[in-house]
């Protein structure tokens, strides 16, 4: 039988080690941010944001990558949103019981766990080669759209589930059809949740590097993308490119670009959280 002091010690040890782990993890995050900031903040400037890449580190800029990232994300959203929301509506409102629906659900859960680089291989084989789209903006966006599709579907379903059934019943009792009920009642009520999930999914996509490298987003693109079939690059690939050079100036560029990427991510996440909080309040008015 342990003495009281020894028993308390075990508890304190466990608690302390848990806390220790937290501190290390937080410390790592803080070190990362601090390190990036120290290395790169000095390099940030308007010139940096608006110049095209160059072989001279001091003249190289983020313009192509930044514009490329924005284009890609918008295109990805355009493709993934209707398909993702449509699929979620079907699974949640129409097909809940059938065997086909179960199969689709299992499939989507599996797709969510496939490494992102495999999606790159899919994009390479399908969009770039088989469909002949080449290493273009549209191929990249299509690939990313497939990557975020499972996440969009899952989060949209969550949002649809929060709509209480009594709402649907009230609508049916007044003579509305299924689609009328979905379009006029369910979707509007679920929309804030859907948007939040969407923004979070896109914020993950904007940091994705591997699938886009695989489909051939070239790492040195000294011009702005000029159309759907144009070659392009994105922020994380530009960072990767600069990281692969040994010269210290390029490494500084990489740090500065990371800061830009992090600010972009922070903004997107903040918007998503603000949306969610605002409509939480409205719902419980």
């Amino acid at each position: 039988m342990a003495t009281p002091r020894r028993r308390r010690l075990g508890d304190q040890l466990l608690q302390a080690s848990g806390l220790f782990v937290m501190v290390i993890a937080l410390g790592a995050l803080a070190a990362l941010l601090f390190d990036v900031f120290v290395d790169g903040a000095g390099r940030l400037s308007w010139q940096f944001l608006t110049s095209l890449p160059s072989r001279r580190a001091s003249q190289a800029g983020l313009a192509t990558a930044l514009v490329g990232s924005i284009y890609v994300i918008i295109l990805t959203a355009v493709i993934a949103v209707p398909i993702g929301i449509g699929a979620a509506i079907y699974l949640e409102e129409y097909g809940a019981r059938g065997r086909m629906a179960r199969l689709i659900e299992i499939n989507i859960a599996n797709l969510a766990g496939v490494p992102s680089i495999i999606y790159g291989l899919l994009g390479l084989g399908l969009f770039v080669r088989a469909m002949g789209l080449g290493r273009s903006l549209i191929a990249g966006a299509a690939t990313l759209a497939l990557l975020v599709l499972p996440v969009v579907i899952l989060s949209t379903r969550e949002a649809l589930r929060t709509v209480p059934n009594s709402l649907r019943e009230g609508s049916y009792a007044l003579g509305a059809t299924k689609w009328q009920t979905i379009w006029t009642q369910v979707l509007p009520m679920a929309m804030p949740g859907i948007l939040t999930g969407l923004i979070l999914a896109l914020s993950r996509a904007i940091g994705e590097t591997a699938p886009l490298i695989t489909i051939g987003a070239i790492t040195y693109v000294p011009f702005l993308p000029d159309g759907l079939s144009s070659p392009f690059t994105v922020l994380p690939i530009q960072i990767f490119n600069w990281l692969s050079r040994p010269q210290a100036e390029f490494l500084r560029n990489a740090a500065a670009a990371i800061l830009v990427l992090l600010v972009l991510l922070l903004t997107m996440n903040a918007v998503a959280i603000w949306l969610r909080d605002r409509y939480q309040k409205q719902r419980t008015a």
């Binding site: 940091g207 994380p236 960072i239 990371i258 992090l262």
Partner: peptide
């Protein structure tokens, strides 16, 4: 949520 390329830098 930190992009993996940033972790690579780190």
């Amino acid at each position: 949520g930190v992009p993996t390329v940033v972790y690579g830098y780190f």
